[in-house]
Amino acid sequence: MTRATSPFYVTLIYLFFYIPIIVLIAYSFNNAQYSLLWHGFSLRWYQELFTDADLWVSVWHSLLLGVLSATIATALGGLAAVSLYRYKFFGRNFLYALIFILILSPEIVMGISMLILFNLINVRLGFWTLLFAHITFCMPFVVVTVYSRMVSFDKYIFEAAKDLGATDGVIFNKIILPLLWPALLAGWLLSFTLSLDDVITSYFVAGPDFEILPLKIYSMVRLGVKPEINALCSVMFIVTLLMVMLSQFMLRKKP
């Protein structure tokens, strides 16, 4: 590729990435139900969106689920990453491989495996099944984020702390946590986004009592294109955009 064509090519790919999103946002302001022609600027669809009570219940459910599963997944994933980094123990390679497999295994397999498990132990599908499933698929991503951060640590810090009489608990509280918090926060944000966006696993473990946003959008989208969904998707895109920028900021900032 020559010097002249490469900016052109890069621009084309970015257009491919962003044109659908821009179109979506533009049409959310269009004052027409079905037409693709511009009928003037309108906030009508946003008004309809903000008065749809059912939808807001599912938004609240998704946020609750996202915060809880991201928090628990970050705690578990953080402990797993610290253990993998600090200790030699029986089954360490197995644990490493298991986390790797969890990241790469198709989501649909995790969905059906959880469905079979919950069916076997007779748990009613709903909030708890979603929570357990979301924690499980978020955790490996936290482990990877935190572990790759720990690899850049100076190992002598731990030796120095040990020489000065610190126990593992003290090392964890006084050294590991302060150094790791940007990675933990990035892991939390990644988990939160994954949980908020998940369709496939949730599809299998969700019940009728606890409706969440992605599944609600999925059922709305299957019925056809509605400008109200354009408005909803635009709001979600802006929220994700802010979260990505926040997490990038957290990761870049060196302690």
Binding site: V23, L24, L196, V199, V221, I229
Partner: peptide
């Protein structure tokens, strides 16, 4: 970004 949302935008 949610892949469901991006798929939906492809329909338009």
């Amino acid at each position: 970004t949610s892949s469901l949302i991006r798929t939906y935008s492809m329909i338009a």
